[in-house]
Design a protein around this nucleic acid. Structure first.
Lengths: 299, 299
DNA sequence: CGGTAAGTTGAATCTAGTCAAGAAACGTGG
DNA sequence: CCACGTTTCTTGACTAGATTCAACTTACCG
């Protein structure tokens, strides 16, 4: 095999040729770019013509799969409402939960590189997703580079999320993991305008355990333990966080330096991450203020 | 160097204004887009004008940090030679290793969204990286959408890698993790033209353990166990894989493949003829070899 | 050479997994 | 509305596996 690499366009995202923006699965109302950025908490310059561009929505019912592992990749999805679980299915039957995407979260990115989704996304609720057909995006990004940046950011964000997860799995014990899971959930729900103190889990102990690398019994025990120490109150899927600080302490016993639990400033649009002004004279290559920089992992 | 052309969008990657493509840290020779795609094992339509575009290289010495956690984000990096470790640094000083990027691997992507790198990249060797200043890319991607797709793919690939890692941490025991780690390393080295059978670790047990969520003693024991069962031969950092199949069986006793390993429609070109040469690799080579579809989790 | 860092190995401890039984919630159909 | 089966959750006792503590060996570097 010589260096003959000109096969057909291996880099093409497929050949979904669509109108302005839509998708095979189009159904129901559409969503403007502006609303999309609001969902993602990412600011972007409002350009009139873009505000008119719209993405299709898709509704997914409880228990229904949005995409299956192995399906041909075509679109990214941003959750607009509801809640999902994403799973690797070990064809011996057992599944490993990779995440619980909720409003504003990305799904499907693991399909870009290989051309096939690598995980299955199942709705845990009646949910709605914004369909972002990647192939169709290049046309748009040509006219609006900031839209391209937005995509990079969304992908990066997902990467960070998963990296935090490996930190959680690599460092924390059972109670720490469960505590981190609850805090993360609390934070995300809070960012969406729900109560940070009180919420209902939409997933089973089994699913939580799979996600956290624990058995369901262990999850149950950890929850009971936190319940007994009055840090939270648990009844089935109802969670009340009584003492958030104590909960944080479970994750990070080493004093308060608890790496920010606040995942996203969520309240206001996240300041433009990539903006930078660093002109060429940026130098100062080594003034790294090696700050503990983490967000609380999980979910 | 200081060209004048600041397109100004709120989401712009900054105003690093550079020539064709270069970066503040420019130093040494450059690398063409074509070579970059070869590094990444991603095909792309060869456009003459693009072939003339070049990326800067940077050399990083053993023990030196390429970027620090908390540094302002400016570029992505593709490893061209050598080996790194990427770490989260816990405020209390302890570090969690996130990966061991090698030739063709991406670094720095966790900095895109927040505008600051979230992990530190330290060279475990004398290494060379291709500097990909993201801000400067939008101009290029306008002219060549496939380049944009390339970036998406690279990010997606990294995401999948980390997802596989969470699978590893979530499901495997100590021996399985170490076995998966070795197989992954073997596969990656093989893809680079080195021996799959015999190689030297460039990281300590401590670092491996941190990466795999284990203590160094546990890593040592796992290696000893595999050594005693004649599956591999270990002597300090020298690894010989004697029975690859047995090693795979340690990861997946059930005999199938790990999740996600399900056969992809071999979208790839066939492999060229490089076999194991049986020598622990350290000869310099940037041989392109096609990556087998998916490596076994880890690393 | 000698000192330090890295790796190995053993024994005790602790944590999470496993097996098992029972309680609580949920859905369905009478 | 209640009875019934199913699923989910909780709890206990026991086991397997990883961590901890500690001694010791081996490599590496000046």
């Amino acid at each position: 095999m010589t260096s003959a690499m000109s096969h057909h366009d291996a880099l093409d995202f497929g050949s979904i040729d669509l109108g302005p923006i839509s998708a095979p699965e189009h159904e129901g109302a559409n969503v403007s770019v502006r609303e999309l950025t609001r969902l993602l908490h990412i600011d972007y310059p409002d350009e009139a013509w873009l505000a008119r561009t719209a993405f299709a929505l898709r509704r997914v019912h409880d228990g229904e799969a949005l995409v299956h592992s192995g399906d041909k990749f075509h679109s990214l999805y941003i959750v607009r409402s509801g809640c999902f679980k994403t799973v690797y299915t070990d064809f011996s039957g057992s599944e490993q939960v990779l995440g619980f995407p909720m409003c504003g979260d990305l799904m499907g990115a693991d399909g870009i590189d290989g051309g096939h989704y690598k995980s299955t996304a199942v709705s845990l609720d009646t949910s709605e997703v914004v369909i972002v057909p990647l192939a169709g995006m290049t046309r748009l990004t040509n006219e609006c580079p900031s839209l391209e940046a937005l995509l990079y950011r969304v992908l990066s964000r997902e990467l960070v999320r998963v990296q935090n997860m490996t930190w959680t799995l690599g460092t924390l014990g059972a109670e720490g993991r469960v505590a981190a899971f609850l805090l993360n959930l609390s934070e995300r729900l809070g960012a969406l305008g729900y109560s940070r103190r009180s919420f209902n889990l939409r997933m089973t102990r089994q699913e939580i355990g799979s996600y956290l690398g624990l058995k369901l019994e262990t999850v149950s025990r950890a929850l009971s333990a936190l319940n007994n120490t009055r840090i939270i109150h648990v009844h089935q899927r109802t969670i009340d966080i009584i003492d958030p600080d104590a909960l944080r302490a479970v994750v990070d016993p080493a004093g308060g330096a608890a790496p920010g639990i606040e995942a996203q400033p969520a309240a206001g649009p996240v300041r433009n991450g990539i903006q930078d002004d660093g002109r060429p004279g940026k130098s100062r290559a080594t003034l790294p203020a090696d700050v503990p920089w983490r967000q609380l992992a999980v979910a």
